[in-house]
Design a protein around this nucleic acid. Sequence first.
DNA 1: TCTTGACTTGGACTTTGTCCAATGTAGGAT
DNA 2: ATCCTACATTGGACAAAGTCCAAGTCAAGA
Lengths: 138, 138
Amino acid sequence: MSDLLERLRGRGWRLTAQRRVVAEVLDGDHVHYTADEVHARATERLPEISRATVYNTLGELVSLGEVLEVSTDGRAKRYDPNAHHDHHHLICSQCGTIRDVHIASDPMAALPEPERFGFAVSEVSVTYRGVCPNCASA
Amino acid sequence: MSDLLERLRGRGWRLTAQRRVVAEVLDGDHVHYTADEVHARATERLPEISRATVYNTLGELVSLGEVLEVSTDGRAKRYDPNAHHDHHHLICSQCGTIRDVHIASDPMAALPEPERFGFAVSEVSVTYRGVCPNCASA
DNA sequence: TCTTGACTTGGACTTTGTCCAATGTAGGAT
DNA sequence: ATCCTACATTGGACAAAGTCCAAGTCAAGA
């Protein structure tokens, strides 16, 4: 539970009520929330927390590498607390929920040198889309 | 060049100056523009074209399957005219430009059945990120 | 406990995109 | 060639997501 908070403290994070609440919201569930959803859930526990603080905190968690930003549809970004495990995403094209998945081969190896165009490639993400069982039955 | 326009006409598209200009902007280059960039370039050729029309036209091209929407960073969507070839993307993490790349293996095969969680998976996209030569030298 | 620099706040602002009523026009019908 | 009309375009208002900032607050080291 407080693994995350411990790590952050060790990195010189000032531990405020707001930050704790945001971290707990992310840590608590396996869904990937948008910033506004995080704010809504944080508000339940700490009614005065401001949107700006939620954005700030999410941004800090991302720069610290504790959380990943996932852009699904060009609208709101979602935040993935599962940053320390190598994984990719499976997104329902109807309801937008995201699952983490693990894949069998290394996609980095699939990009041949001549296709890199001089880029210093440092990251790769694979996104699968389809209809989830829930939406399929509806 | 007018392959695209021909196809669209065949599908009952009313051919207006505005639509022609937007199609030409997309068709003309290998970069993937944002809607605003498309609008800026369209304005050079047809000064009175409105933002709404550019958005409408891009939306139509996407529904017709002639153009793909690419969500890179949760900010502006970019439009990829290369919808008929199977390809993936290499994005500069600094300036945001996108190149199309071709990869060596089929990423769909990399997702094992138990990792599909009952989804009807229909699509996969692989996104590489790194720093482009241009930004690296700056 | 005091101090201080880091944190939070709310509101204004920006960017990206959507919607709509009024106006214009492409292209088939005559 | 001209007319009609359904489809397109326009601009401006609106909305959603996110950023920025000056002023106030507070965690934690001295």
